[in-house]
Simulated assay, not measured.
Amino acid sequence: MKIALASLCLYLAGLSTALGQTAPNFAGDWWNGRCSKMSLTVNGEQLSGKYETAVGGGTGTEFDLTGFTSGDMVAFSVNFGSEGSLTSWAGQDTMVNGLETIETMWLLAANLSDDADEPKTMWRSTWTGADNFVRTKPAHCP
């Protein structure tokens, strides 16, 4: 599975290059509309950094971020272990109203209590949504 995913990413990166698209530099600070901030470092196609959430129980705490880039695509994950969840984002760099934007979809897995009811409540453990990240801190963020 990992080999197939890696092959797909490399194919898409090659396709982007063939279409004349240049890979963006994802390094630096990015904010989403909920005022969460991620600080990214890029080494080749490897992505690392910190994610400071502005929502949930971990507000104001920095968490490790790891991921990959391929052309103008990005995928990264954050372990919110102390808060009982893991989240992964996948998306693409684009321009929206003149602003460089990473448009993503996310998937959050929340830890449920290990009890007899867990099999009946497992449906509650996975959430999904969308985030757009921009390089400039939104005016409505503190």
Rank of each mutant, 00 (worst) to 15 (best):
T121D: 05
E62F: 00
F68P: 01
A18Q: 11
L15I: 05
T61L: 10
T126Y: 08
N79L: 06
R34N: 11
L12I: 15
T104A: 07
T53H: 08
E100D: 06
P24K: 04
S82M: 14
P119M: 09
S85V: 02
S85R: 07
T41I: 07
L12C: 14
L15R: 13
G28L: 09
M73R: 14
P138D: 03
G84D: 04
A90Y: 04
D115P: 04
E103C: 00
Q92E: 10
L40T: 04
K37E: 06
T22V: 14
F133I: 03
L65G: 01
M95Q: 10
N79F: 03
T69W: 03
K137H: 07
T17A: 15
G44C: 10
E118D: 14
G56K: 02
E118M: 15
W127I: 11
L112W: 00
G84E: 04
G67I: 03
G129W: 02
L65I: 05
G44K: 07
L47S: 03
V78A: 02
L5V: 15
D64I: 01
A23C: 09
G67Q: 03
Y51S: 02
V55K: 09
T66R: 04
A23F: 04
D115W: 03
E52A: 14
A139N: 09
E83S: 11
A4Q: 15
T59E: 12
D72L: 07
D114T: 08
A109D: 03
A18W: 06
P119V: 10
N111G: 12
P24V: 07
V134K: 06
W123R: 09
D115V: 06
P24L: 07
D72E: 14
